[in-house]
Structure formats: structure tokens, C-alpha cells
């Protein structure tokens, strides 16, 4: 994609993400010819969409359809592109009972209606059930603007389709890798927005007769936060191009940490106004907390990386010249 096309795409996407609209994001993207854009250059298109989604704290469900597409693609089952992927629920796992019935507890971003729902049962089992066999309850979360629903139910064996073995684990991991990359893009978008906004604010707010941004105490907070955001951005770009699980894992780790740290440092620069609903900041903070939890929060992922290094006794290098 050349730079002019990319600029036009950014402008259109920003409009779609920020306008008040009750039409689902997928339909508005379809009007833009989004499928062609993605088919032409998926990495740039998706990187741009999700970074902008972070930048604008848009509430649209962009991730759900992508997770379904990644899983359907990995399983070679086009029917699953309409599926809803049930992610880990904070209230308990999904499980297969001895009689073959499926106990579901999962979190989704859009009610599944009658679409198929796919949940992870264990490392080598996925369960597929129809959405109308489950109870869908809206969740009250840290981020009230980002809809999340809990799906629960106990589906009889006859209504459960099971995907087993390596096929199941390979497909689920491919979906997780894709999802981690997209969430990392979104977290980087949030972090970049917050850093730029805080830097600008400190140039406007006057105390002791000068902009508070002249104080090194604040300059150093924002500069150190920016450094981690740059590192996260480079990792995220690489994870998009390479598509491999390890670089997506590391990218989401650093992106989650960078976004949380950017919010912490920016909040101090905004002072009291940033603590109120008169300021946009709380939306970014809330979105960061909720996104970081998806597909592994940064602290858990750091532990996962460390355990992998210790047990494999191999330290991989990401990116060659």
C-alpha cells in the first residue's frame, strides 16, 4: 500500500470509528470495500484499523470477527467465519462432562444469536455449539463502553460438535496469535495517543508562571514511557509481518506493559482534571485494563516467556537483518 492510499484509508477508518452510528462496524467497513483492502494487504490494513481503534477508543467490535476468521482459516472451515469465539471467562472454565455434555463459561463481544460458538475446553479439545443453546448476559466491566457478554450453559452431547487433537490446538493457537497481534496494535494506539496528549497538555497548563512541561520531573515521566511504546510498536509491526506465535506473544507483552505505563505517567501530567469525567483520559485507562486481560495479561505473559526460556534453555532472536 503506498503512502497516499494509506493516508486515505486512515481518514476513512477514523471517520468510521468515531462517528455515532448504530450500524455494526462490519457493515460500515463493507461500505468502504474493506474486504478488498484486507485481501490486498492484510497486515497494513489490520494494523492500521486496530491502531486507530486504540487511538480513538472506539467501541466497535472489530476483534470478534477477526478471531472467527483466523480460526475458520486455520481449520479450513469457511462456515466458522460467522462463529463467535468464546474467550476465557473470569468466572470459570468451559468443560466437557463425563456424559459428553459441554459446560460453557466464556466471554464474547457480540451476542452470538443463532451463530455457532466455539470455546476452548482444554489444550486438545474445542467445543462448537449453537448460540441459541446458551444464556447470554451482558457484563458490567471496567470499561462500560466496550460491550462484553458472558455465555453460560450446559449443552447436551447430541448438540455439541467436538474438534480434537492437534487440529484443535493448532487452530486455537493460530487464533490466539492473530488476536494477540491485533490487541497489541490497539494497545500501542492507546499508548501513542496518551503520550502525545499528555505531552501537549503539559505545554498548555501554566503553573508558577510557566508551562508545567518545562519541568524535568514531568518530561522524564513522559520520555521514559515513550521509549517502551516505541519498543512495543516495533515488536507489533514485526509480529504482523512474521505472523509467528512467539513474536505476537512478546509484542502483546510489551504493548500491555507500555500502555499501562503510559497511562500511569500521563495521568500524573494531567493532574486533577485527568481524574474527572470531563477529560477523555479515563476511557483510555479503562480500555487498557480490559484489553490487557484479553488472551493473557502482560504479567502472565512475561512469566510465560521466562518459563519458556528456562525450560527450553533457548533464547530466540526476533528479527534478522
Amino acid at each position: 500500500m503506498d503512502n497516499d492510499t494509506l493516508d486515505m484509508l486512515r481518514t476513512s477508518l477514523r471517520h468510521v470509528l468515531t462517528e455515532a452510528n448504530t450500524v455494526p462496524l462490519a457493515e460500515r467497513l463493507a461500505e468502504l470495500g474493506w474486504d478488498d483492502v484486507v485481501a490486498d494487504d492484510p497486515v497494513t490494513a489490520l494494523h492500521t484499523l486496530f491502531t486507530l481503534k486504540g487511538d480513538t477508543v472506539s467501541s466497535a467490535d472489530a476483534i470478534g470477527p477477526r478471531l472467527a476468521a483466523a480460526l475458520a482459516d486455520a481449520l479450513g472451515d469457511p462456515q466458522l467465519t460467522t462463529a463467535t469465539i468464546g474467550l476465557d471467562s473470569p468466572f470459570g472454565p468451559s468443560a466437557l462432562a463425563a456424559d459428553g455434555s459441554l459446560i460453557v463459561d466464556a466471554v464474547v463481544f457480540t451476542p452470538p444469536a443463532t451463530n455457532p460458538v466455539v470455546v476452548l475446553v482444554d489444550a486438545v479439545h474445542l467445543g462448537v455449539v449453537s448460540g441459541n443453546t446458551l444464556t447470554c448476559t451482558a457484563l458490567t466491566t471496567t470499561d462500560g463502553n466496550l460491550a462484553q457478554y458472558r455465555l453460560t450453559g450446559n449443552v447436551p452431547a447430541a448438540q455439541v460438535q467436538c474438534i480434537e487433537g492437534a487440529t484443535a490446538s493448532i487452530a486455537w493457537n493460530a487464533m490466539v496469535t492473530h488476536g494477540r497481534w491485533l490487541i497489541a496494535c490497539e494497545l500501542v494506539g492507546i499508548a501513542q495517543h496518551v503520550i502525545a496528549s499528555a505531552a501537549q497538555y503539559t505545554g498548555e497548563r501554566i503553573q508558577y508562571g510557566k508551562p508545567i512541561g518545562t519541568f524535568q520531573a514531568l518530561q522524564h515521566r513522559i520520555a521514559s514511557a515513550h521509549v517502551l511504546v516505541v519498543g512495543a510498536a516495533r515488536l507489533t509491526e514485526f509480529a504482523g509481518t512474521s505472523g509467528d506465535a512467539w513474536s505476537a506473544l512478546v509484542a502483546k507483552t510489551v504493548a500491555g506493559q507500555a500502555a499501562e505505563n503510559a497511562c500511569t505517567q500521563a495521568q500524573q501530567c494531567y493532574g486533577a482534571i485527568g481524574f474527572t469525567w470531563e477529560h477523555e483520559f479515563h476511557h483510555y485507562l479503562r480500555r487498557t485494563y480490559v484489553l490487557d486481560r484479553l488472551l493473557g495479561d502482560w504479567r502472565s505473559l512475561e512469566r510465560q516467556i521466562g518459563n519458556e526460556l528456562m525450560t527450553s534453555r533457548q533464547v530466540p532472536k526476533i528479527g534478522m537483518l
Partner: peptide, 18 residues
């Protein structure tokens, strides 16, 4: 020591790509 090692690795990987 998993988290501390994971943190060090993640920062070194970020430095590498930057």
C-alpha cells in the same frame, strides 16, 4: 524468576527490533 527473565527478554527483543 520467570517474570524477571521474561521482562529482560522482552526488553532485549524490543531493543533488537528498534
Amino acid at each position: 524468576f520467570a517474570q524477571q527473565l521474561g521482562h529482560a527478554y522482552a526488553l532485549s527483543a524490543a531493543l533488537r527490533l528498534t
